[in-house]
């Protein structure tokens, strides 16, 4: 059996070259491969293109979580439906990088998902009704099909996907939890090399085949998160504690709905 298990995050990202395209999920804190992001930051790989769902400022201390934005100084391009937090000035925090030449490509979230699917399935792209009449259509081919307007979107084919899984067996069969699943199955399938950090590695046969979400054929490297790693239930709980200390955030997350 091919060994897919790596004993460190640094080893798992060691071959990533400058200029690589990385797909990495993020929903603020959840669903994020914090340890792999931290390892790529340590490695210092340059000219990265990052594909993610939520690209917000690094609001946590880096010993609790690392969001894709810790890679900003190493990036040449960002592809994401969410840049910034609306009430914190949206994508304003990226202006200094854009002025220095970083490219930012925005689109609807469903468009991102469809482009990853297209990349995974070997399609030449998609004709998408979402984004027509908006700034997303700027610079893109438009086409009328059966009387309806569409814009052309190219497929996304990341070199690497960084995934955050719940558990994997040694073949790479992968289970996520709750809404951590989100874009990750598509990212895994679209990438040339998919690397997953998981809470637990289990023996082959320990995952009910009916429950496998991403079949092991799509997973190339597996790293188990150590007890002192990022993304553990303890670190997650510590972050919630921190967030509840800030009155404005507490009201936003837990306050009366109004």
């Amino acid at each position: 059996m091919l060994n897919k298990i790596f004993d460190s995050f640094d080893a798992a990202v060691a071959d990533i070259p400058d200029g690589a395209v990385i797909a990495v999920e993020c929903w603020g804190y959840p669903a994020t491969a914090h340890n792999l992001i931290a390892a790529l930051k340590r490695k210092g790989t340059k000219d990265l293109t990052v594909i993610t769902h939520t690209f917000i400022p690094q609001v946590f201390s880096e010993d609790l979580a690392t969001l894709p934005s810790v890679l900003l100084p190493q990036m040449k391009k960002l592809i994401s439906p969410i840049v910034g937090i609306m009430r914190l000035g949206a994508g304003g925090f990226l202006r200094e990088y854009v002025e220095k030449g970083m490219e930012v490509e925005v689109m609807g979230h469903g468009t991102l998902a469809a482009r990853l699917y297209a990349g995974a399935a070997g399609l030449g792209g998609i004709y998408d009704p979402v984004g027509v009449g908006t700034i997303v259509e700027e610079g893109r081919e438009k086409r009328v099909i059966n009387g309806k307007e569409y814009i052309f979107q190219e497929p996304l084919k990341p070199d690497y996907a960084f995934l955050s899984g719940h558990k994997a067996d040694k073949l790479g069969n992968l289970v996520y939890r709750g809404n951590y699943r989100s874009d990750q199955p598509m990212m895994a399938m679209a990438a040339k090399t998919a690397i997953v950090e998981v809470e637990k590695i289990v023996e082959v046969g320990d995952i009910d085949p009916e429950h496998v979400v991403t079949p092991g054929v799509f997973i190339d490297r597996i790293v188990e998160i150590p007890p002192d790693g990022l993304g553990t239930p303890e670190k997650g709980a510590a972050i919630i504690q921190q967030l509840t200390q800030l009155e404005s955030v507490r009201d936003m997350l837990f306050g009366k709905i109004e």
């Binding site: 439906p81 969410i82 949206a90 994508g91 930012v104 979230h109 984004g131 700034i135 997303v136």
Partner: peptide, 26 residues
């Protein structure tokens, strides 16, 4: 029935799209 609900800044960095465009169209 045109909708503007994601951006008050004018360019791509002025707002966050998320799922809004898909939800509006679909």
């Amino acid at each position: 029935g045109d909708l503007a609900n994601w951006n008050t800044g004018g360019d791509a960095l002025g707002g966050t799209i998320g799922g809004a465009m898909d939800l509006a169209v679909g």
